[in-house]
Design a protein around this nucleic acid. Structure first.
Ligand code: FES
Ligand code: FES
Lengths: 160, 160
DNA sequence: AGTAAATCCTACTGATTCGGTAGGAATTAT
DNA sequence: ATAATTCCTACCGAATCAGTAGGATTTACT
């Protein structure tokens, strides 16, 4: 019940890219400095994000990274999965009904709760896009956030 | 995004106690064997659960543990907190509004999401009691579980 | 009284994960 | 050519995790 710094950093970095979306590529160094993250470490996170097709790279001088899709098409869940693999709360929930689920499932009264919890988490993560975050609001579902909508709105606005 | 075996084991063990509620104390060994958990390890989990007042112990021969309250009064969230400390998804969420929250909060577009996620998790965990679990159903909220209600009902039934 | 069954307490350990460094090869705008 | 940048892979120290170990204390039962 603690999100790794991979996730924290990754999401913050992606927000940075989302805010720069439409302009040119952004260098890792720049994002790292703005967010106070180790540059070399962030480099590795970006590699993972690129491998999953969430961001695109431009090599060489003046290069950097850009979002591979519109901010509205990238869900936080996608970022988390890219950085940590499938969201599986415990081994008993071998995500995807495929294989190797717990042999105790039939008799385990806890199992339905883990399923519910995992679904809850996944649904929150997948109902929020980068667009939602930089706009200050959250995803769709009934359940809305605390409600402190800061009035400082970022500049960018893009129509692909 | 992975629950520790402390949590998994702890909850399963508490379910075991809940099912035995009303009868005499249950020894650690018995729970450990039924659930396939290391006895000595479980012993430590029980120590933590007792310290938090969720279970009570009876020392000496024929001793063991019993729930300290009715199964309906023990929420899964209580168990998790007893075993892992306050549920805080990240340091930026120094649970309880007290101190040392992130200095980046004002400018951090991710923060509201973490709050939302943490609230979601907490609310699921706190809306499910041991009673709910051994009865096969989940907590209150609109969102209900998969719905596979096994017909094997355990024996115990108690009115305190 | 004696014994066996149990909780209680604390220290240690091996493995894994985490967060981060390090160094350098390949690519590209200027 | 050069400087800026991504890319790749290996390594490292610290922390956490899951579990062991051993023994002191308490208590029911005979
Ligand atoms: S122990 Fe595997 S489903 Fe609960
Ligand atoms: S970095 Fe602390 S609130 Fe986002």
């Amino acid at each position: 019940m603690k999100l790794s710094s991979r996730t924290e950093y990754g999401v913050r970095a992606m927000i940075e890219l989302a805010e720069a979306h439409g302009g040119g590529p952004v260098a890792v160094r720049e994002v790292a400095e703005k967010q106070g993250i180790s540059e070399k470490y962030l480099e590795q996170l970006f590699a993972a994000l690129r491998k999953e097709g969430l961001i695109a790279s431009q090599r060489g001088a003046q290069g950097g990274y850009t979002l591979a899709k519109a901010p509205g098409d990238i869900r936080v869940g996608d970022i988390v999965r890219a950085l940590e693999g499938p969201i599986a709360l415990c081994d008993c929930l071998a995500n995807g009904e495929d294989d190797a689920v717990c042999h105790r499932m039939g008799e385990c009264a806890a199992h339905p709760l883990w399923v519910k919890l995992q679904d809850g988490i996944t649904s929150i993560l997948d109902s929020t896009t980068l667009q939602d975050m930089i706009a200050g609001a959250s995803g769709d579902s009934a359940n809305d956030m605390g409600g402190n909508s800061e009035e400082e709105s970022r500049d960018e606005q893009d129509l692909p």
